[in-house]
Design a protein around this nucleic acid. Structure first.
Length: 423
RNA sequence: GUGAGUGUAGCUCAAUUAGGUUAGAGCACUGGACUGUGGCUCCAGGGGUUGAGGGUUCAAAUCCCUUCACUCACCCCA
């Protein structure tokens, strides 16, 4: 029986991995421009970290986490991280970063794990690139993150994404809205789907997000969170919008947008694409001003986002930008003497930074040339008994088909010099 | 967790409608034509437990049952 990978855990093979590298490279560039530092945190954390930060009753915590018991005396409960923010905040608090400099702009990338049914744009091990800004409460930083994302999408040539924006209010104003909404929903509970009737009391905001036609119909005239924001929240949200308009970043207000995690407050946002099928969110995030304190740190505001790598890859794969590595030189050898010459020569050239490839088995010259062509080598060196006898090697430019004889003596210097010139 | 769809060569697919020689093709791969010079062309070759297991039948890729995998959707979310 062949051993296969497990459901929802995919290999990223050559041919596709180049797109991943491209995205990661561009992300680093943008994060650099915006002065973010990278942070690397563990993939496994204590289960409690996630249940406390995401919310006990969220779907992720209730049924999607990979949780197991560690083999130590205490039988610790551990969990494969389902998202990145909790761990970053934990690290911020644990290392007491705030003592030295409370304002931190951090980014991370890596795998996350949720035990959901796989489908287009959704894996059980999936990759996110995310960023968090800790210690800044002002609306400028909310807008800055949105501009960063907008810049990033431009940099990778991604079009057709739209920004949806909402504010969830704060501890001051959200409870009042919640009561108002709950009263509204109770009046028409009979018209809501079973699912919504169940979650209505626990998390009434979620009902606004339901795709069930009956629920959409029933909540058509539901009160909007944006009408209930307190003075401070309204001011904050207005500034965010104003800054976006100044920078010509288009957005759409969506007062029904609810984030899945409990820690969000004030600004929340989602960049979506219509080309992704059901899983249309490319990047999403928001503000979480209470989380640092919840995890035992000093009261510290926070705001961040995460992007879904496989969704970005899906969108970019629709375009052709894959570039397989191309050897600068292919060494073709004939006869035992040729091979004895070629192998150490290849190594010395590689030590000097030249990408070299060669055949290992005795193959016909034609066959080796075919292989060089297939690998798209730019140049070929041919060395056989004839050449060795004359103290030369034949250099062939595969694109122009030009061929010349080079002296073996000083050949490596000559090749390094010639191949340095960009093709 | 629920539902639907799909499983035939490395890849894309024929053959399934009404069971019937040895399961085919294109691409890819290997070699040759061109004994030491790539791409084009032509020729040849290798590659299959028809996802797996069981059943019906003289005979199963094809019909029935079970199971597994994948895909998409619900759900949820990045």
């Amino acid at each position: 029986m062949k051993i296969t990978s497990i459901k929802g855990f995919a290999d990223i093979l050559p041919g596709e991995v180049e797109i991943w590298q491209f995205i990661e490279e561009k992300a680093r560039e943008v994060f650099g421009v915006y002065n973010f530092s990278e942070i690397r945190i563990p993939i496994v954390e204590k289960t409690e970290l996630f249940s406390r930060s995401l919310g006990e009753t969220t779907d992720i915590v209730e049924k999607e986490m990979y949780t197991f018991t560690d083999q130590d005396a205490k039988e610790s409960r551990l969990t494969l991280r389902p998202e990145g923010t909790a761990g970053v905040v934990r690290a911020y608090v644990e290392s007491e970063m705030y003592q030295v400099e409370p304002v931190r702009k951090l980014f991370y990338s890596g795998p996350m794990f949720r035990r959901e049914r796989p489908q287009k744009g959704r894996q059980r091990q999936f990759y996110q690139i995310g960023a968090e800004v800790l210690g800044r409460a002002d609306a400028l930083v909310d807008a800055e993150l949105l501009l960063l994302l907008s810049d990033f999408f431009r940099r990778i040539g991604l079009e057709g994404v739209t920004l949806e924006l909402n504010s969830l209010g704060c501890v001051q104003c959200r409870p009042a809205y919640r009561e108002k909404l709950l009263a509204f929903l109770r009046e028409r509970a009979d018209r809501l789907c079973e699912n919504c009737r169940r979650r209505m009391e626990r998390n009434p905001l979620r009902v606004l997000d339901c795709k069930e036609p009956s629920c959409i119909e029933a909540t058509r005239d539901a009160p909007s969170i944006l009408d209930y924001l307190c003075e401070a929240c309204r001011e904050h949200f207005n500034i965010v919008q104003e800054l976006l308009r100044q920078s010509d970043v288009a957005y759409k207000l969506n007062p029904r947008m609810v984030r899945g995690l409990d820690y969000y407050c004030r600004t929340t946002f989602e960049w979506t694409s219509t080309q992704l099928g059901a899983q249309n969110a490319v990047a999403a995030g928001g503000r979480y001003d209470g989380l640092v304190a919840d995890l035992g740190g000093p009261p510290t505001p926070g705001v961040g986002f995460a992007m879904g790598m496989e969704r970005l890859v899906l969108l970019l794969s629709m375009r052709e930008l894959r570039q397989a590595p191309r050897p600068a030189l292919f060494l073709v050898w004939v006869g035992d003497a040729g091979r004895a010459w070629a192998f150490p020569t290849a190594h010395r050239l590689r030590l000097r930074g030249v990408s070299v490839e060669m055949e290992g088995e005795r193959k016909s010259l034609k066959s080796q040339m075919r292989r060089a062509d297939k690998l798209r080598a730019r140049n070929v060196i041919i060395v056989g008994d004839e050449e060795l006898g004359k103290g030369i090697a034949v250099l062939r430019d595969m694109d122009s088909k030009e061929q010349r004889e080079l002296r073996l003596e000083g050949l490596e210097d000559e090749l390094v010099r010639r191949l340095e010139a960009p093709a």
